[in-house]
Each structure stands twice: as C-alpha cells, then as structure tokens.
Write a protein that binds this DNA or RNA. Structure first.
Lengths: 130, 130
DNA sequence: CGTTACAGTTACGTTAACGTCAAGTGCGCT
DNA sequence: AGCGCACTTGACGTTAACGTAACTGTAACG
C-alpha cells in the first residue's frame, strides 16, 4: 500500500512546498504529523489533507477556509449536532464553488473572444508585411 | 447609454468595495479615473476593468496577475511585437484557467461525495431517535 | 572524533492588499 | 461668513502566509 510515512523532505518533494510551509501548516493545525523523537512523520492522512490544501489555495481559499473544508472530509460521526453543522457548511461551500465554477466558464469564454480578436489583428499585420 | 461617469461613492456602492480600495487600484495602475479638479470620475472603461478585477480576485489571481490579464482586453493594436506577446500570454493564461476549471470540477465532485456520506450518517441518527 | 548534512525551534523580516486615522480642500446651503 | 459634507492626500497599522537567520541536536561518514 501507499501507507508508508514520509519525512519532511520527501513530503516537500512530493508536493512542491518548503519545510517551513509544512511546519506552518502543522502550527495552524492543518496537518498532524506524528513524531519519532523530534522528527516529523507525515502519514497517509496528512498527504490526503495536503492535497486538498494545495488545491484549495489555487481556488483562492484562505487557510482558514480550507481548515473548515478539511473538517468536512473527516466529519465527527459521534455527534449529531456537530455533524449537522458540518453538513450545512458543506452545502453552502458547495454552492459557492458551483457559482465560482460558472463564473469561470464566463471568464474563459470572454478571454477566448479577446484572444480571437488579437489573433485576427495579428493576421492583418502578417498580410500587411506581404 | 451607460456612459455616465461615477464618483467614488457611486463606484463603491456599485461594486461593493471601499474608497481606499479604488484609490489603491488607481495607484497600482489598474484603474484610470479622470479628474474634475481633484475629484475622481470613473468611466465606463473603469467599470469594465473593475468587473474583471473583482472576478479575477475570486479565482485567486493576484492584482499583478490581473493587471496583465487586463492588458489582454485592451491590446496595443499599433505594435505587432507587443501584440504577439499579449497573444502568447493570453493563450498561456487561458490554458491555466482551463486546468483550474477542471480541477474545480473534480473538487466539486469530491465534496459532493463527502456531503452525501454526511447526509447518510445524519439519516442514521434520525432513525435512531425514532 | 571532527565535520558534513539534515532536522528542529525561536524569533524577527517580508509582501500583498488593503484599513485607519489625521489634516487639509472644495462646494453647496443658510 | 460659517457650517457640514464628501473628497483629497499622506502616513502609519494590520493580517495572512510564509521567508530567513541564528542556533541547537543528532545520525552517519571517513
């Protein structure tokens, strides 16, 4: 399995981040590496979480936003009230993401139009230069 | 037409930003309001640009990223070389945005799965409570 | 056993994107 | 003329998300 733990260097290489970043995320309680003496060992769970963190960041979410999102992936199944809050939050977040997704479609379409215009102008230049 | 210019207050209300933000964007050369004496007047062009700025921010682009994107919407048609650079940039950016959109689709799908799981757990709780 | 190599902590530095506050200016009203 | 209000320009403050420097600990190597 992919159940081997990673040290900080391997983790950095795997995700393209710096050690400082991983320590920072641990301090912010986004990751929970175990310890062997003083050294950190990153588990399968940490890798899954870091994947979501990195992705979330590309969508413009803050680390605090992401921390809440992460909880939705490991809900507290023992507490109905807590679970319900998580559910509400997740629904709201999903709505936001779908809105954002739609806006992205629009933005892409618009940029493509501009790109076509530019291409046409360039074609004009090339014709003018024989 | 919608060709009336807006003062800073109207502009803020229209876009949900603060005066400080608009002045900041002007200092960063993202907006170019004209002046009547010392007062700023925001034109149709400024409104178009601010729309793109606000949207870009939601996608996690930095203001510097956005400044470059904005140039793609007002290419310098007088210079073939510059126009070509703009075209290259726009193509690259479009690629990034499409990648990002795809990742967003994945993220949405994954979150939806978690949401369903949570909903199932909640249903279990409700059944247990008679 | 010295040193190289990496990992750890503590603490201060940095950048982006504004917020906030002070002090001044122009304008319409009474 | 005086008042209030919206606008202006500095200038300093703030927060998030790390970077960087300085120092310490330790396992391994020749």
């Amino acid at each position: 399995m992919t159940d081997e733990t990673l040290n900080i260097r391997q983790m950095c290489d795997a995700f393209g981040v710096t050690p400082r970043t991983l320590r920072f995320y641990e301090a912010k309680e986004l990751l929970f590496p175990t310890r062997v003496g003083t050294r950190r060992l990153f588990t399968r769970r940490d890798r899954a979480r870091l994947t979501l963190i990195v992705r979330g960041k590309r969508f413009g979410f803050s680390l605090e936003d992401i921390r809440q999102l992460l909880d939705m992936y490991e809900p507290d199944g023992s507490n109905a009230a807590q679970l319900n809050r998580t559910f509400q939050l997740a629904e709201a977040r999903l709505g936001q993401m779908e809105t954002q997704r739609h806006e992205m479609d629009v933005a892409i379409a618009e940029l493509r139009v501009e790109l076509d215009k530019t291409a046409t102008m360039l074609a004009g230049f090339r014709r003018a230069a024989e």
